[in-house]
């Protein structure tokens, strides 16, 4: 499962935001001066190598990280499949996560889980309550021809693309192992939702960094989980990578006898139940790392 090669993301920001009444791409979010689009892009840059923002020609966009690239709808107002076409043409990645720009609670682990579920040459798409979510899905970059042919045939529904490729629907139960609140699927469509969003708190995203034997067991050097504390984050790590138990982490999130947990590669965590902040990194360290 999952395609080897660089991972990318396509963020569709060219919608008219009619119900919101103002451009979603420039909605303020996060720290002073931050925007919703900037937040989504930064979340994605933590888990992919290449981010393409698709916009309307001439659309005002907020300041974004220097390594973000841009693509433009060649035909405007044709919906997300047209935007996906522009993004797939521009990407340098082997496969891309497609997202709207209005998902303030997009979880990094959620994105990773969809990449992990991607079948060879196929699509992995989030599914909940019987619906598939085309803007919470991973597509192979070479699906660009399929998208173009669909649009040429006048078919604009992204869901039609699923007929063209092997598709894995990642269901709610699986998604909740990485995003217990399924917050990644919640987007903001109107001003009321936007105002209410400011009072919602979701579990912090925590980066788990693995070395030596732990890296071997998990089959990856790092990954993201959601967890309010180190213990919760480590328990979530075991749920994502069960091979870590019990030799590295017990299922309740307690590190094994010789393991310590470093916060950001600096100090070691003494209180596993102390709160973590969004974006914190926990480095799992075997104290017997000598030799």
């Amino acid at each position: 499962m999952s395609i080897d090669g660089p991972r990318g993301a396509v963020v569709l920001a060219g919608g008219r935001s009619t119900r919101m009444g103002r451009d979603k791409a420039t909605l303020p979010w996060g720290p002073a001066g931050g925007t919703l689009l900037g937040h989504v892009v930064r979340v994605l840059l933590d888990v992919v190598d290449d981010v393409v923002v698709v916009a309307r020609s001439g659309q005002p966009l907020p300041e974004l990280p220097a390594d973000v690239r841009f693509a433009y709808d060649d035909v405007e107002d044709e919906g997300p499949l047209r935007g996906l076409l522009a993004g797939l043409r521009a990407t340098r990645a082997s496969s891309v996560y497609a997202s709207g720009c209005d998902t303030p609670w997009l979880r990094r682990a959620f994105v990773e889980a969809l990449f992990d579920a991607q079948p060879d040459d196929g699509i992995a798409i989030a599914a909940s309550e019987g619906f598939a979510h085309p803007l919470a899905a991973v597509y192979p970059a070479d699906a660009v021809d399929d998208v173009a042919s669909l649009l040429a045939a006048g078919r604009r529904r992204p869901i039609d693309l699923l007929e063209r490729r092997t598709t894995v629907r990642v269901d709610e139960a699986v998604l909740r192992t990485v995003d217990p609140e399924l917050a990644s699927l919640d987007n903001l469509n109107d001003a009321t939702a936007f105002e209410a969003a400011h009072t919602r708190h979701v579990l912090p995203d925590v980066r788990i960094e693995l070395f030596e034997r732990a890296r071997q067991l998990a089959g990856r050097p790092h990954g993201w989980v959601s967890g309010a504390t180190a213990r919760a984050a480590l328990a979530a790590a075991v749920r994502r990578w069960p091979a870590l138990a019990p030799s590295v982490i017990a299922s309740d999130g307690t590190p094994a006898r010789t393991y310590g947990v470093s916060l950001g590669g600096r100090t070691f965590v003494r209180d596993l139940d102390a709160p973590l902040a969004d974006g914190d990194a926990l480095v799992l360290v075997d104290a017997l790392s000598g030799g």
Partner: peptide
């Protein structure tokens, strides 16, 4: 057995 002590490089680098 599986990696040898060469595995220390990445970890010690991460820890500065």
């Amino acid at each position: 057995r599986t990696l040898g002590t060469v595995a220390n490089v990445a970890l010690l680098d991460r820890l500065g």
